[in-house]
């Protein structure tokens, strides 16, 4: 099993590099001369030429990419055009905040969404199930930035229960996690419900009942594990949705995270920082996909066997 994990970790590298290449290529087209931004008032022809040589900006495209990639693997994200400090510093300062919000949303959605999905799958014609379906539909259609604004209006402005911005203390995490997670949770609920419906109809559930297994145990011991596969897929793969949404969430709730850094850097034409943010997010998604595969192996013994984990 551990062999498999290592193999996949290594396989991740070319993927991340490929993504970096794509993003690098796109950002290559940003118009303007970086030296203008960096040097500002101190700009002169000579200084510009010197700076370009130093940063390698006068080299060809492939050389520049190669240089970037090699630095990247060593953890060097380059230098910000604006702050003239290593991009890594800014990322290290901001990324944990993003991580906290995303993790908060994920935890909330999984802990609440999965049980709801399970229950409405087991009782598909009940009021609860219909309510779940409607909530699910609304949830995936609700724009999270609007939801964020509405939550602020209700809980911060009107009720004054929760803060509307910043990130200090548990209370300030509640609204952003709720807003960010709404789409994600709706998806999880729907998938878990429909997966549960599928599984309940299977023959082996009938066998379990015929053995005299109690109704509760039929769901918890037999149906649940079998129904988790599609849900796990969504939980893992949809992290992209969360990362895309965190940009919006950080904007609405004024949280100093990677998302807002990305937007600011785009506005200021600070290409290295933009690249840094995007690469980090791509790495997150790649790691998340890997974790999904690992969890698969634990849930479904057939997959574990394929990975060569059978009798570890």
């Amino acid at each position: 099993m551990s062999k498999f994990v290592v193999k996949r970790l290594i396989a991740m590298i070319p993927v991340v590099l490929a993504v970096t290449f794509v993003v690098f290529t796109i950002m290559w087209f940003v118009p303007g001369d970086p030296t203008n931004i960096i040097l500002g008032n101190e700009w002169s022809e000579a200084a510009s030429a010197e700076l370009k040589a130093e940063l390698g900006l006068d080299q060809s495209f492939l050389v520049q990419f190669f240089r970037y990639a090699t630095n990247l693997v060593q953890g060097d994200f380059g230098m910000s055009y604006i702050t003239r400090a290593p991009v890594r510093e800014q990322l290290m300062a901001r990324f944990p905040n993003t991580l906290v919000v995303v993790a908060g949303a994920m935890l909330f959605c999984v802990c609440v969404g999965v049980p709801i999905g399970v229950y409405s799958g087991v009782r598909p014609y009940s009021l609860f199930s219909n309510f779940t379906m409607v909530a699910g539909l609304l949830g995936i259609s609700f724009p999270i930035f609007w939801l964020g604004l509405l939550l602020i209006l209700l809980f911060s402005v009107h009720l004054r229960w929760l803060p509307s911005s910043g990130l200090d203390g548990f209370a300030s995490l509640i609204l952003p996690s709720l807003a960010l997670g709404s789409n994600y949770m709706a998806n999880i609920m729907r998938i878990q419900r429909s997966s549960m419906l599928e599984v309940i109809r299977q023959d082996y559930i009938r066998t379990a009942k015929a053995k005299g297994v109690t109704a509760r145990d039929v769901v918890v011991k037999h149906a649940l594990q079998n129904s988790m596969m599609p849900t796990i897929t969504v939980i893992g793969m949809d992290i992209g949705t969360l990362l895309g949404g965190v940009v919006l969430t950080e904007t609405v709730f004024s949280i100093p995270g990677t998302g807002r850094l990305l937007v600011e850097s785009i506005n200021k034409r600070d290409t290295p920082t933009v690249l840094g943010c995007l690469v980090i997010m791509a790495v997150c998604i790649a790691i998340s996909n890997l974790m999904v595969d690992i969890v698969y192996a634990y849930v479904d013994p057939r997959i574990k066997a394929q990975y060569g984990g059978g009798k570890d």
Binding site: D203, Y204, T207, A210, H222, Q225, D300, P301
Partner: peptide, 17 residues
Amino acid sequence: DKVAMIFQDPMTSLNPV
């Protein structure tokens, strides 16, 4: 306990996990 049943299709009547 008192009554038990063997079903028709053995391929799908066992829990895979």
